[in-house]
Amino acid sequence: MSEISEETAEYAARLARLSLDGADKEKIVSDLAEFVRYMDVLNKADTAQIEAESHISGLVNVFREDVAEEEHFDREKLLLNAPERTADSLIVPKTLE
């Protein structure tokens, strides 16, 4: 496995729509580097015969009829949390020039 450099950390931050510029930068990068070095211990785990499972609780798919269920959310109640809004919609910055 590898080290996480400042460059790699910045790349991962960009993927997550975060900027690393700021007071936290040095601490975040050094903590990440330390943890990624530590993760190497996982290499010792013998997983050659093991399948990767995203869920291990033995759940199986449960299907239901494809019928929409009504949820009554009041539009105004939802919009109360909007940072910028018109009477009945959200406002976002222009996405096309």
Binding site: L18, L32, T47, A52
Partner: peptide, 28 residues
């Protein structure tokens, strides 16, 4: 932010198998 960045890192191309997939197997 640190955990989000760590998550984006272990899922990113080139690191996915070494970290994320390996961790899933360790979980099993």
């Amino acid at each position: 932010k640190k955990r989000i960045i760590l998550g984006a890192f272990v899922l990113s191309s080139g690191y996915y198998d070494a970290y994320y997939l390996k961790a899933l197997k360790a979980k099993t």
